[in-house]
């Protein structure tokens, strides 16, 4: 798909993120906004996946290991017409399929329930392993938070994926440098991630701007063409990307916008959309 079209989809995902977290009066807009561009590229350019393929055994799979970025996943599923756009407003409400963290039992399109950090990557490894066992051609993509890589389980999973040469697995690390208690450095930095993944027998690709559609497309091409090892794409992003007052602000990790902030954010996104 053309870059311009993908930018529009990413912008729509951002609107859904703001709409959902505003209606929920909670949620995680910062780390959802930083991942919007990647989800647009994966679901509309890369993956063999569509609304009539949610149970297709040959579909490509996306696992949101950083489950708190659920609003971004729901946003892209709405763009895919797997959930109605109106339903975004039900995020985190009683009875909603759009749980605070994605639940596979509630919602088609969620490959595996996530939310407790470090666990989605293991499930993604299991799905990739099943693909190898069944000699399927599908590819598994998983998105991790940078802070999430502080979980030991991430490295247990990486060790297994590397040692078993799961080249049908591509991990993305959303390196926005912010976690709840501060910057990575202020908390307990897991960096450098490129060298760590290399030493775990991964093909590693560093993307300087993980909010740039073309750079993401190029990285995914490289990942898919690499045989014999899983790939880790370390993508530098901006937390809160696309909403001026949320960009780079750790405070926007885990709260919803109030009415004034909501209107301001939506106005910015509307204007950005019109320019595209």
């Amino acid at each position: 798909m053309q870059t311009q079209e993908l930018k529009k989809i990413a912008n729509n995902i951002r609107k859904s993120i703001i709409e959902g977290t505003y209606q929920a009066k909670s949620g995680h807009p910062g780390g959802s906004l930083s991942a919007a561009d990647l989800l647009a590229v994966l679901y509309f350019d890369t993956m063999n996946y569509d609304k009539d393929m949610v149970d297709d055994p040959d579909r490509d799979r996306f696992v949101l290991s950083k489950g708190h970025a659920a609003p971004a996943l729901y946003g892209v599923l709405a763009e895919k017409e797997i959930i109605p756009k109106e339903e975004i407003k039900s995020l985190r409400h009683v009875g909603s399929r759009l749980q605070g963290h994605p639940s596979m039992k509630e919602l088609d399109g969620v490959e595996i329930s996530t939310g407790s950090l470090g666990q989605g990557i293991s499930a993604a490894v299991g799905i990739a392993l099943a693909g190898k066992l069944d000699e399927k051609d599908y590819h598994v993509y998983a998105l991790l938070g940078d802070g999430e890589t502080e979980e030991g389980q991430v490295w247990e999973a990486a060790m297994f994926a590397g040692n078993n040469n799961l080249d049908n697995l591509t991990l993305f690390v959303d390196l926005n440098n912010l976690q709840i208690d501060g910057t990575l450095d202020e908390v307990n930095s897991p960096l450098p991630l490129d060298e760590k993944f290399k030493s775990f027998n991964f093909n590693v690709i560093v993307v300087d701007d993980g909010n740039d559609i073309d750079q993401l497309k190029q990285a995914i091409d490289q990942a898919l063409n690499y045989k014999g090892k899983p790939t880790a794409v370390i993508m530098q992003t901006i937390k809160g990307k696309g909403v001026s007052f949320m960009e780079g602000e750790v405070d926007w990790h885990g709260k919803g916008p109030n009415e004034e902030e909501y209107k301001k954010a939506m106005k910015e996104l509307e204007e950005a959309g019109e320019k595209l």
């Binding site: 595996i112 293991s122 993604a124 490894v125 299991g126 799905i127 392993l129 030991g152 389980q153």
Partner: peptide
């Protein structure tokens, strides 16, 4: 811990 997660992924794939 990883073993339980891999098992979950395998089960989700049939």
């Amino acid at each position: 811990q990883n073993m339980m997660g891999i098992a979950a992924g395998l089960a989700a794939s049939g």
